[in-house]
């Protein structure tokens, strides 16, 4: 009997060990992905699949002495380009460059912070699923299964040599595909077109947003965030087409984030309530006490709605 108990104990210990090893291996892969994604030069074509649609885009990513440059171009539908240089993002539609985002906080390395990794392992269960082929490369498949139904599961295919993300799928209830990116063609390193690498000069003063980001504490609180979501920051920012500054709060569980935007409702129409989505990203608007509240996140619709309903003003 004693022997049996000891055996059982040993078995449990080794199972626990295997589990812990698998988890740490999965997290190591994530760190590799985050690092490789920033440091590797690559160009390729990938498909983005969401809501029964398929769109093809081209991506080029190069690292120069003064940072990363990345160009994303839609290959079907209206022509659109997004260029990113570190934290600055330009949106080229209709032959006009509009600076949409510029994060003053540079130096994003190391891109996955230790806190983020520990949050990840607290909220998701990681599983290594073997090796598959994507775009002609061998890829390690890793599944991150959430511990509740308020977030999506994530499945990633990581190039075993370079650590680049070759494919990523977001899965909802019953493992239903919510959205998916996959490279169909990819060149890693070598001769990559850099002719486009320059900062846009023709950014007109009026359409570019004067970026004012200040840390803030607005007095708004959220009561019903899913477990494990921690507040990353709260800022007061300007936004395109908005007169008054907008409060943005960001909460994250290590993988996905939920942003809450609060602004005075300067539009006369009250009829802005609504849920909209693109792939895994869901957005919900609602006017609460003359404030327009917008919740955005890579979380299921029920989560953005639950979060919005629980936003309230707590006073300063």
């Amino acid at each position: 009997m004693k022997l049996l108990l000891v055996l059982c104990g040993l078995m449990l210990a080794s199972v626990g060990n295997v589990y812990a090893e698998e988890r740490s291996a999965s997290l190591d892969w994530l760190e590799t992905v985050a690092f490789a994604g920033h440091q590797t030069d690559y160009s390729g074509v990938f498909v983005y699949q969401y809501d029964n649609r398929v769109e093809t885009s081209k991506i080029i990513h190069v690292t120069e002495v003064n940072g990363e440059y990345e160009k994303l171009e839609s290959l079907d539908g209206p022509q659109r380009q997004i260029v990113r240089h570190d934290g600055q993002v330009w949106d080229y539609s209709d032959h006009k460059a509009v600076q949409v985002e510029s994060q003053q906080v540079s130096g994003k390395f190391p891109s996955l912070l230790p806190e983020q990794l520990s949050a990840l392992s607290a909220n998701y269960q990681a599983k290594l699923l073997g090796v598959e082929r994507v775009a002609g490369y061998n890829a390690q498949v890793i599944l991150f299964q959430p511990k509740d139904n308020l977030r999506y599961a994530h499945k990633i295919w990581v190039h075993t040599d370079s650590g680049l993300l070759l494919k990523a799928a977001v899965l909802g209830d019953k493992n239903k595909l919510v959205e998916q990116y996959a490279f169909t063609q990819l060149q890693i390193g070598g001769d990559i077109d850099r002719s486009w690498v320059k900062l846009p000069q023709n950014v007109s003063g009026s359409s570019a947003i004067a970026k004012e980001i200040t840390p803030a504490n607005s007095g708004w609180t959220v009561d019903m965030l899913p477990a494990g979501y921690k507040k990353n920051m709260e800022i007061l920012r300007s936004m395109r087409g908005k007169h008054a500054p907008v409060t943005q709060m960001v909460f994250s569980d290590g993988w996905s984030a939920i942003s809450i935007f609060i602004e005075p409702n300067d539009q006369d129409e009250d009829d802005v309530d609504g849920l909209s989505s693109r792939g895994a990203m869901n957005l919900y608007h609602k006017v609460v006490d003359k404030n327009l509240i917008t919740v955005v996140g890579e979380v299921p619709p029920r989560t953005v709605m639950q979060v919005l309903e629980s936003v309230r003003y707590n006073g300063k």
Binding site: G87, V89, D91, V100, E101, Q103, L112, Q116, N232, M233, R237, M239, Q248, V250, S252, G254, W255, S256, A257, S259, F261, M281, V296, G297, E298
Partner: peptide
């Protein structure tokens, strides 16, 4: 886009 910039 504003959300994306701060999303892990």
């Amino acid at each position: 886009i504003a959300h994306q910039e701060f999303s892990p």
